[in-house]
Design a protein around this nucleic acid. Sequence first.
DNA 1: GTAGGGTTAG
Length: 508
Amino acid sequence: MFHPRKTTFPNRSNRFILLPLQLSQPSESTQAPLTIKRSSHHQAIRTPLSPSQDSLLHIANLILKSKPEALTQTLEKCDVQWSPDVVVQVLKRLWNDGPKALQFFESLDRLPNYKHSTSTFDHAIDIAGRLHDYRTLWTLLSRMRQRRLGPTPKTFAIITERYVSAGKADRAVKIFLSMHEHGCPQDLSSFNTFLDVLCKSKRVEMACSLFKVFKRRFRADTITYNIIADGWCLIKRTPKALEILKEMVESGLSPTLATYNILLHGFFRAGQIKESWEFFAQMKKRGCKPDVVTYTTVIHGFGVAGEIEKARKVFKQMVGEGCLPSVATYNALIQVLCKKDSVENAILIFEEMLRKGYVPNVTTYNVVIRGLCHASKIDRALDFMDRMKDDKCDPNVQTYNIVIRYLCDAGEIDEALDVFRKMDGGSCLPNLDTYNILIGGMFVRKKSEDLVVSGKLLIEMVDRGYVPRKFTFNRVVNGLLLTGNQGFAKEILRAQSMHGRLPCKFKL
DNA sequence: GTAGGGTTAG
């Protein structure tokens, strides 16, 4: 499944706004891509600022609407000084339309005054990998090398992650081990990154064997051991994590606070609540001062286990012990209140965090919105979504997915479609989950017109590089046939044979 | 893009 990588934009809202002003301002002065302003003469006036979100949105929409053959022309006509920074931002906006993003990347190469950078190549390689288009991926890599722009260790982190998440972990190991043949030597940090990629995809056994073979060659450090321990914790095998940490100490490396936080989280994840509590107590007793990550782990862990009072108590305690909660701490508390207490109590905490000067981020809003939807208060959830826009915290694809899912479940299909339409003209393109949720919703009312919409959505998602499951495909085609839409059903089947990407099962 | 906390329900 496709999961967009975390954005690399500075996370403004995660900062505690009572900090001195110069600390809470992300420094943007070092990069100065150009932005567009139109005078009354429709002539572009360029000012040395990054393009505004609005103009990026405008550019992304132009690209989405443009036919592939006209794309270079469209780009020439854009009143933008193309620079790698601007291109990366546009590629991020086109993230959920991989084929378009790659067309955009290619068209730029035909512009006389623009040259791709290491970073734009990395993004294009990432997108090709996500589309499982490995031929394009390796072509891009060799072009990158010809132009002396890489590949860098980051490029290989991207490639190996794409292979692992496509279920090709063995191939990823070979690629990692052959990095040097592509002009990129391995070192400890690329080794650590690769082990982390394997662990995060739950290929912990494989990571561990690789670790055993190469730990001496790469001189495994604390971070290596932490990565492997966290891997075992992720699959709830805390005894294996403890084993690794024992080995770590024997090899002369000292655990850090991160090590303890990993283990603490592991106990909670494995449902070993008693062990978690004892471990947390031991940490404090032995003078290992918990930090905000430790407290957030404990609050979330107790909450998930249904121990709301304990979670609240720890939240109160942390301030007394000289540790201020972060936005993530609030998010953890709000989430567990939604789940195990009530959304009303969660909103009280949300309001408390505002009073104390914290700036909620998109996760905060998503947690509250989900809580409201879950309590069948969809109208209030929609109010919160509007409020996000006012608070300069744009809804992301998850926000839309939550609301669309609950609207479909409640049978409010027209409202769900309304929200969906807002996405396309908006800042965020639908992802695979969005299409699956909405196509499923088109079967709720058993209306012929809904099935036509489901067919259009199916075609659109394929155009954007998503592969529907066989189940989805058959369901839509069958639905169309059963509601007298034979013509459209045939059209979809024809598109299927042309694309060759759709699952092939259905025969007329 | 060398590690640790917060976003889905079933």
